[in-house]
């Protein structure tokens, strides 16, 4: 993979919560235009990693680069402007706002405000249900619709990367498949890079171009789906055999 193909680079980062070491010496490279999944059990440090990329946590050491630009010390609002959008864990839609207002907030940064009409057309064609419910308060959406809104809201910033934390949390399998199909459609049609965290190992591997497996704050395995040993990934996920 050439430097040009790498959109996001995480280099030897360490993240601490007080004295607790949540991530240690973690490095990863995310390829442009691909769907990358991060697999790991609860407490593996996946959400900490994503929050650190977004500037919500600051690493105690290491660097993070977006298209070669050092974003390690940037504030979250500046990181969003570099082209990284996030659909956070639990959707975190703005409950008191309508669906349309949520989407308008997605294009809050000046760069995307100019393209609002085009971006609305794009997200409404991808998620027609959001168009139908645009005047409804987000608090009344179902779980699947909230996840769609969170992804659509991230897309309203016209990002180069969309990070989805716990994309399937609390959703029925049929809805999860539908959401993964949408992710693939967006990736194929617009070339948007995705970084996805999902709890289900097989589904994560099947729906990705590349996967990272995290255990205790570090990456223990990575590769394309065809090159990953799914049994070993499951061992790592469940902390069995050599990962115990």
């Amino acid at each position: 993979m050439s430097e040009k193909d790498i959109i996001l680079k995480v280099e030897d980062i360490e993240v601490k919560y007080g004295d607790f070491l949540a991530i240690s010496d973690l490095s990863m490279e995310v390829e442009r235009g691909k769907i990358t999944t991060i697999i790991g059990a609860n407490g593996a440090g996946k959400s900490t990693l994503l929050d650190t990329i977004m500037g919500l946590n600051k690493p105690t050491k290491g660097k993070i680069y977006m298209e070669g630009k050092d974003i390690t010390k940037m504030k979250t609002n500046a990181i969003v402007r570099t082209g990284i959008g996030m659909a956070p864990e639990g959707s975190l839609v703005f409950e008191g706002m309508s669906v349309k207002e949520n989407l308008l907030m997605g294009s809050y940064v000046p760069e995307s405000r100019k393209k609002r009409a085009e971006l609305f057309e794009r997200v409404y064609s991808l998620f027609p249900v959001l168009k139908e419910k645009e005047k409804q308060a987000a608090t009344f959406l179902s779980g699947g619709q909230r996840q769609m809104l969170a992804i659509a809201r991230a897309l309203m910033a016209d990002p180069k990367i969309v990070i989805c934390d716990e994309i399937s949390l609390g959703l029925a399998p049929v809805i999860i498949n539908d959401i993964f199909d949408k992710v693939k459609d967006i990736n194929k049609e617009f070339g948007t890079t995705f970084i996805i965290v999902d709890q289900e190992v097989q589904r994560s591997v099947d729906n990705s171009d590349y996967s990272f497996v995290m255990v205790k704050g570090n990456i223990v395995m990575e590769g394309e789906p065809s090159k990953l040993d799914i049994d070993e990934v499951k061992d790592a996920f469940f902390g069995m055999n050599k990962y115990a």
């Binding site: 977004m54 919500l56 504030k75 979250t76 609002n77 969003v80 402007r81 959008g85 996030m86 956070p88 975190l92 839609v93 703005f94 409950e95 008191g96 706002m97 207002e101 308008l104 907030m105 997605g106 809050y108 940064v109 809201r153 910033a157």
Partner: peptide
């Protein structure tokens, strides 16, 4: 105005939308 309301609604989510 929407950014102010978003901050009130969910500060973390507002920051992820690029709101300071």
């Amino acid at each position: 105005g929407r950014a102010i309301r978003a901050t009130s609604d969910n500060k973390r989510a507002a920051e992820l939308m690029g709101v300071n």
